[in-house]
Design a protein around this nucleic acid. Structure first.
Length: 468
RNA sequence: GGUGGAGUGGCCGAGUGGCGAGGCAGCGGCCUGCAAAGCCGUAUACGCGGGUUCGACUCCCGUCUCCACCUCCA
């Protein structure tokens, strides 16, 4: 096995050499559940879902921990706006995220810890940092505790910045910091903030700072040394830099490989609330098939910026249709007897090479083409081989059409009812064609097309399908 | 100012020092009553200027443009 991943810290492709042979621990920065998920969140989750699926396919026992940060400044602020208790908002948003992940067939992580359930361990780490001289309670009596960046020579190691080059935030509130670059590990409770957002601590009641929760949750479940830490590119600084500094200063070896997924842009700009260009998960999944959305999100390498457009989604939909068409025809021709198969070597090589999914998709399409060709020439052995490999690749990519047949569709009886009605029309059309009454035949086809039903004439008669 | 990344054919998007991934769209052909689907074939390319090399889109230097982070952000 020779799996390579690009590591942000060393800026090189690293061979994955698990801390525990045969097993891999991955920690992914999940969302701060402050507002609705957008397509960028989906892309991030999908990137690590693909990583997890591939490492599993390679025989590794994967432990994937993706946190939910459910206490944070923004959550408190947004809850004030909506009038909900902050914890109700956090949970409501968390469920929106889960629904979007499920729709995309992002597998549930091994565990999904919430920040609010890890306060004790955060405090333990903060205490340790104070003991070691890398953190200090604010002198202003605010109850805040800060990480002392000056005490940590390696500060900036992840993002290759020198501490002295860092521009101080113009609008940062210095409060009790010794240096503007110091960051909060613990925030003292302030009058007016909900009592429910306050936990007792050796430094007074308060709540955690933004970065400490990840140091606590990752090491809690994966150990003080673990294999892979992932997150969005925009989290490199300050979040991951601070997370690394406080973890290392606390004496943890921490993550071996730091992986960062690229962002989704709209109109060549990053999606952001202030630009009002966010594409929300619910809207997107409501307007395009989940399978196509998943394909689209995987169509660029995970580290590249991915440009969103309605056209791109439509192209993904077409590509997926092509794949689904082959899978359906192959299953029918083989009477469902699609053999189990391994993924092709080229596919495996692409995935091993820093999860080159676009390259892997090229292999998938090549096999689909070969399968279609086999179908056209009646080469059943070739068809079986291609169908098996295609199926295996689709499983790894989470794109198998069988997974996307919704239960509602299958169980409601709608499909059967529609089939009866469409078959009646197809019989009429077949009769008309037999009499060479093509205008009647075409009228029937046009009517069905108008209704969103596509007709294909095959050697076995007409087939129908719903336009994606 | 610092740090990281990108500029590839109509569009999206991989990649490599030397037979131009893949998808979508296009064109020609096969199939079809006509379509659809599929198959076969096919055009269009590597921001710009130098350099290294037998040969560079790929390496080096310079240059232009764009994006991200340095403030909450996947």
């Amino acid at each position: 096995m020779n799996i390579q991943l690009y590591d942000t810290r060393t800026q090189t492709l690293c061979a994955l050499e698990p801390v525990r042979p045969g097993a891999v621990g991955i920690y992914v920065c999940g969302p701060t559940v402050q507002s609705a998920p957008h397509i960028g969140h989906l892309r991030s989750a999908l990137s690590y879902d693909l990583m997890r699926r591939w490492l599993s396919a390679r025989g590794l026992e994967v432990t994937l921990v993706r946190n939910v940060t459910d206490i944070d400044d923004k959550i408190l602020v947004n809850a004030e706006t909506t009038g909900e208790p902050w914890w109700a908002l956090a949970y409501r948003v968390e469920r929106e995220f889960s629904a979007a992940y499920d729709a995309l067939h992002v597998l549930p992580p091994t565990y999904e810890p919430r920040a609010t359930a890890s306060i004790q361990r955060m405090q333990l780490i903060i205490e340790r940092l104070i003991e070691r001289g890398h953190a200090y309670p604010a002198a202003d009596g605010s109850g805040d505790v800060y990480f002392d960046t000056a005490s940590w020579p390696e500060y900036g190691a992840l993002t290759h910045q020198r501490r002295e080059d860092m521009v101080d935030a113009a609008d940062a509130d210095p409060r009790g910091k010794r240096d503007p670059r110091d960051f909060a590990l613990w925030k003292g409770h302030k009058p007016g903030e909900p009592e429910t957002a306050s936990w007792a601590s050796p430094w007074g009641a308060g709540r955690p700072g933004w970065h400490i929760e990840c140091s606590a949750m990752s090491t809690q479940y994966l150990g003080e040394t673990f294999d892979i830490h992932g997150g969005g590119r925009d989290l490199r600084f300050p979040h991951h830099e601070n997370e690394l500094a406080q973890s290392a200063a606390a004496g943890f070896e921490f993550a071996r490989i730091w992986v960062h997924n690229g962002l989704v842009s709209v109109g060549e700009q990053k999606m952001s609330k202030s630009l009002h260009n966010s594409v929300f998960a619910a809207d997107l999944l409501g307007s395009a098939p989940a399978q196509a959305v998943r394909y689209f999100l995987g169509s660029a390498h995970y580290r590249s910026t991915l440009e969103y457009s309605a056209t791109a989604i439509e192209e993904a939909r077409r590509a997926v249709e092509r794949i689904n068409g082959f899978v359906a025809r192959a299953a029918e021709t083989l009477a469902g007897e699609v053999p189990e198969a391994a993924v092709p070597d080229e596919f495996a090589a692409a995935m091993d090479d820093d999860l080159n999914v676009p390259q892997a998709l090229a292999v998938l399409h090549e096999r689909v083409r070969a399968g279609n060709a086999a179908l056209a020439t009646g080469d059943l052995d070739g068809l079986r081989s291609a169908a098996g490999e295609v199926s295996a690749m689709l499983q790894v990519l989470g794109l198998h059409p069988d997974d996307y047949r919704t239960d509602a569709q299958a169980e409601s009886g709608l499909e059967q009812a529609l089939d009866v009605l469409v078959q009646q029309r197809l019989h009429e059309r077949a009769a008309a064609r037999q009499q060479r009454d093509f205008s009647t035949a075409d009228r029937i086809r046009d009517e069905l097309t108008e209704a969103g039903v596509t007709i294909e004439d095959t050697a076995d008669g007409a087939k129908w399908s719903i336009n994606g």
